[in-house]
């Protein structure tokens, strides 16, 4: 992907609207291109300013009730059926107004920042498999993989050797999730690949649930020593939980 193509996709990338292959190509381009990273950064900056600064105008108090009353007065659009005033209908309308009032307190679900993060992690896992780009440094040796990240990231992911427990290390990769570079450590268990993403443990990271599943992948999240960890795999939940506990205890 060249810069012209990247510029045309910058909005869709920030909005999470690219398909996995395009997303992978875009992420690869961004890793190597500071100018386009700046473009994406500017978009994120505006998005952040808008979500923090643009007012979401919630419906004023009483609007639901006023609409409810107006609906009661409006003719129901059932052809050939005349609206008749009956005490029973009046009682029902009053009940409806009461029901509408209770709806007035109903609020739209606020988009969860942790959700977007999880989507990004799973997309990262999928694109690494699809683009056949699992690792930038292929090594089963933790002492090769760990130093490789030096100078590439502002964090040093702890790399552990779990071969004896059935989770051999495959290598490491620089990835781009949730608007920042992250370390991806790749492990294998039988035929399954585990991507372990390591990124700074911030508010967005903390918003992701400890265990979740999406698009058929299991995701486990934990934090440790200021770092957030996300293990993404098509492994069964029990196997992935075993991987998690091994990662956490082998210090």
């Amino acid at each position: 992907m060249d810069c012209r193509q990247a510029a045309a996709r910058a909005d869709a990338f920030v909005d999470g609207e690219l398909d996995p292959a395009e997303r992978a190509a875009m992420a690869a381009h961004l890793l190597g291109c500071a100018a386009c990273r700046g473009q994406v950064e500017e978009r994120r900056e505006l998005a952040a300013a808008l979500s923090a600064g643009a007012t979401y105008h919630r419906a004023p108090e009483g609007l639901a009730e006023r609409i409810g009353a107006a609906l009661d007065a409006a003719p129901a659009f059932a052809p050939g059926r005349a609206q008749r005033w009956r005490p029973a209908a009046l009682a029902a309308s009053l009940a409806l107004v009461a029901a509408l009032s209770s709806f007035a307190t109903l609020r739209l679900a606020v988009p969860d920042p942790g959700d977007a993060l999880l989507d990004d992690m799973v997309a990262g896992h999928v694109r690494a498999l699809m683009a056949d780009h699992l690792t930038d440094v292929a090594s089963s040796d933790q002492h090769t993989v760990k130093p490789w990240f030096n100078g590439k990231l502002n964090l040093s992911p702890p790399v552990k050797d779990l071969t004896t427990s059935g989770f051999p290390l495959v290598g490491g990769r620089l990835d781009y999730v949730a608007g920042r570079p992250a370390a991806a450590l790749v492990y294998r268990h039988r035929q399954h690949v585990i991507n372990l993403f390591v990124a700074p443990d911030d508010a967005r990271a903390a918003a992701t649930p400890a265990a979740s599943a999406r698009q058929g992948y299991n995701v486990l999240h934990w934090s440790d020593g200021g770092l957030g960890y996300w293990a993404v795999s098509d492994l069964g939940a029990a196997d992935l939980a075993q991987f998690q506990s091994l990662m956490r205890e082998t210090r």
Partner: peptide
């Protein structure tokens, strides 16, 4: 469908959108 049922169905679909509607 009676008028009451129709209204109840409508309110289930439309009223949760009231904030979004007002904001737009």
């Amino acid at each position: 469908m009676t008028d009451i049922e129709r209204k109840a169905r409508f309110e289930r679909v439309a009223l949760p959108q009231l904030d979004a509607a007002f904001n737009l």
